[in-house]
Simulated assay, not measured.
Amino acid sequence: MWPSLSLSALWLAACAVAAGSDTGSTNEEGIRSIPLRTHTLNPPYLDSDMQSRWFDFGGDTVIRADKYIRLTPDRGSREGWIFSRVPLTATNWEIEVEFQIHGNGNLHGDGFAMWLTKQRATPGPVFGSTDRFEGLGIFFDTYKNNRPGTVFPYVMAMVGDGTKTYDKANDGKDNEYMGCSARGIRNANVRTKARLTYFQDKSLKLEIQYKAEDQWELCFETNEPPTIPSVAYLGFSAETGELSDNHDIISVSTKNLYDTKRADGSANRAGASKGKDKRPVKQVEKKGSWGWFFFKLILFCGVLGGGYLGYTAWRAQKRSHRF
């Protein structure tokens, strides 16, 4: 039998964990964001066993716990990757990554990629990861092979269906979904960041910070976004060839997004369509709402508390029978 102290500690710990869940925040546009720990990376990156609970890494990747995850060093013919262990299954999300592309040479390459694909942790020829991928790839390409009239570094998105091949000789031009030039993204004087925001069937937007702090440049945006696999792993990879650079991931922040205004607006429109009925509509808490969450929390703690009291009463009764 457990001692009463252990059961009491278990009860308090369970309540503390449940009550301490991050409920996120809501911005002025009514978009509520809830952090996803499973797809977030911050120093020191690794646990006491020198492993990451939520990410795998390989190739030439080196992790310096106080500073960066270096996908490749500034040396030729290197490649490295880091991928989430669990898929990103949120319907709407925002991924913000801080990174650095830097080196000493005037000639440099090749760049790094951000992935949301069915495949994971598979080295290959596309910025250090596999070709013929299924999902979305965002390429931060620093070396120009053959794209006349295009200013490099160039940031480009490609949507793979499992059969398309990335044409490295022409910097992926034939299969480009959207993209933008980002001169100054390498050896930048400010922290370089990319923010990818996705609302299923509604929008996809990529913004980049590299000119000034808190100044976001719109790279591309569409109201007809591609379909991203429902099971897609978040990853980053990089490669160097004859030319090289340091490709560092500093941090990754992923959030689940929820449009509160859209939900309220839908409810309001539904109520307005029944204009003849002027009676107030009774508000019902739906499963998944915060009211329902706290109700379940109180119920959960109540059950544990009742069990604890019953157990202590049983112990006291049993002790009294001994005399």
Rank of each mutant, 00 (worst) to 15 (best):
F133I: 03
D171A: 03
Y198K: 07
L218M: 15
F152K: 12
V151Y: 06
V190C: 12
F199L: 09
V155G: 04
W93C: 06
N170Y: 14
R132N: 02
V155C: 14
D141A: 08
D161T: 01
W115L: 09
G162H: 01
Y177M: 01
D161L: 04
K211F: 07
T89R: 08
K164N: 13
D201L: 06
P153T: 07
D171E: 13
K168Y: 11
Y154G: 11
P123S: 11
N187T: 02
P125H: 11
S181D: 10
M158S: 12
I208S: 04
K193C: 09
A194D: 06
K164C: 03
D110K: 11
G162R: 05
G135L: 03
Y154K: 12
N170G: 06
K193F: 04
N145H: 13
G80S: 09
K168P: 07
G137R: 02
Q215V: 14
T91H: 10
G137S: 12
G109W: 07
T117R: 08
E94T: 13
V151W: 04
T150A: 14
E207N: 15
D167C: 02
Y154M: 06
N170R: 14
F140R: 08
L218D: 15
A90S: 11
T122N: 13
W216K: 09
N175A: 08
Q119D: 11
A169K: 13
Q209G: 05
T122Q: 13
Q200R: 14
K205R: 15
E94N: 14
V159Q: 01
Y177Q: 01
N92R: 02
A157K: 00
K144E: 12
I82G: 06
W216F: 15
T117K: 06
D171V: 11
W81D: 09
F152C: 05
N187K: 12
H102S: 11
P125C: 13
Y143S: 02
S129K: 00
Y210F: 12
I138V: 15
K118Y: 01
H108W: 09
F133H: 00
L206R: 08
D131T: 02
C180A: 13
T197M: 13
G149E: 12
P125T: 10
N189C: 06
M156E: 09
I82Q: 06
T165F: 04
K193M: 10
R191Y: 03
A169G: 11
N106E: 11
P123A: 12
D174P: 02
T222D: 02
R132E: 00
P148G: 12
Y154S: 03
L116E: 04
